[in-house]
Simulated assay, not measured.
Amino acid sequence: MDKINARNDSDPVLLIKSLNKFRGSAQVLRDVDLKLFAGQRIALLGHNGAGKSTLIKTVLGLISADADKISICGSKPGSRQARSLTAFLPEAISFHPALTGYEQLGMFSRLANVKADLTGLLERVGLGDAMHRRIGTYSKGMRQRLGLAQVLLGRPKLALLDEPTSGLDPISRQELYTIIDELAAQGTAVLIASHALTEVEARTDRIAIMRKGYLVADDTLAALTANAGLPTRVRIRARGDVAAIAVQTGGRRINGASVEIEIQTADKMTLLREIAAMGEAVADLDITPPRLEDLYRYYAKERLQ
């Protein structure tokens, strides 16, 4: 049977429960729990070897899992129903070089038994002028765009994107995330495995971090920041006496013209009121909250020590 259980609108699109996987005697996934609901965008982060690829392959049904460990809309990975609901964009994408982009997408459409506006899809991903060129002439970024057009076929319930911006220029990256936003808006659950921390920081709803097979973090960026307790940095550029500002705020002098203070988020407004009271002595200030890179280092290294 493909179906694991009955499903309603509040059920997750992707449900992973206590998933363990071994490669020989080495354990590569350790009690992984993950839920992904319709319309959510989750960034899956982790060093090479953290377990991201194994997790994705298991969700796709390319690696076997116990029947009760993973479900996609209530169906088992690899089942006909799960395959029809899932789209996958691999990092190293390959197509037949002798086919045109239009022909390749048409073949995918027939295999999936999906009627689609192929020209519209190819134009949507920026291949309108190249759709009738042979794929062998495409750059890596163009092949990535063609793969994204394949993902858009049939409005999948679950989209797994492995380094989707690989080979794309900055403008194309922004366009890709706009398309990901549109996928999520129409109800697709999107899992993005990426090393591009700056990109996913602002374009995803949750951050999941893996380390040595463990899922060491899974929450919103705001919640991860609060739980980590990492400091916010405030840099004050002085118009007058830098030393006096350093003494008053307890900060350290930087380059003889600025003072830098590290505070907890809860203390930020108190400090800002103190700075405002300094009046003309302050020329400018910058506030730098913990970045995703800082949080990634904290959860990927510190949490398990």
Rank of each mutant, 00 (worst) to 15 (best):
A202S: 14
I209G: 08
L191M: 11
R203Y: 15
E182I: 07
D219N: 12
V190Y: 06
T232D: 13
I192M: 06
L221V: 00
L176W: 13
E201N: 09
E182C: 09
I207C: 00
T220N: 06
A184K: 02
P231L: 07
G187Y: 08
R233T: 10
L197H: 07
E175V: 13
L176I: 13
T204M: 09
T225M: 03
T232L: 10
A228S: 10
E175Q: 10
A193P: 04
H195T: 09
A202G: 08
E175F: 01
D219G: 04
G213R: 02
A189S: 05
T178E: 14
L197E: 06
D205Q: 02
T178W: 10
L230D: 05
Q174K: 15
L176A: 07
Y214N: 12
A217G: 04
H195W: 09
K212P: 06
R211I: 08
I209W: 04
M210L: 14
E182F: 05
L191N: 01
E182A: 12
T188L: 09
T198A: 14
A189E: 10
R206E: 11
Y177E: 11
I209F: 02
D218A: 08
T204V: 11
L221Q: 09
T178G: 15
V216G: 02
A193V: 15
M210G: 07
S194K: 02
L215H: 05
Y177T: 09
V200W: 03
T204H: 13
V200Q: 08
L183K: 01
L224Q: 05
A208G: 12
A222D: 14
D181W: 00
L224T: 08
R206P: 04
T188C: 03
K212T: 14
I207D: 00
A202W: 14
A222T: 09
L221S: 02
L221M: 12
T232I: 15
S194V: 03
A193K: 11
A217I: 07
L215N: 04
A185H: 04
A193G: 09
I180Q: 06
H195C: 01
E199W: 05
A226N: 10
G213D: 13
Q174P: 01
Q174C: 08
R233F: 10
A208R: 05
T220Q: 07
A228Y: 06
T225H: 06
L230H: 04
A208D: 03
T204E: 14
L221C: 01
Q174M: 14
G187S: 04
N227I: 03
Q174H: 15
A189V: 07
D181Y: 00
T188R: 01
P231R: 12
R206H: 13
E199M: 05
D181G: 08
D218I: 02
E201P: 00
I192E: 03
D218Q: 07
Q186E: 13
L176V: 12
A223S: 11
G229R: 00
A184R: 01
K212W: 09
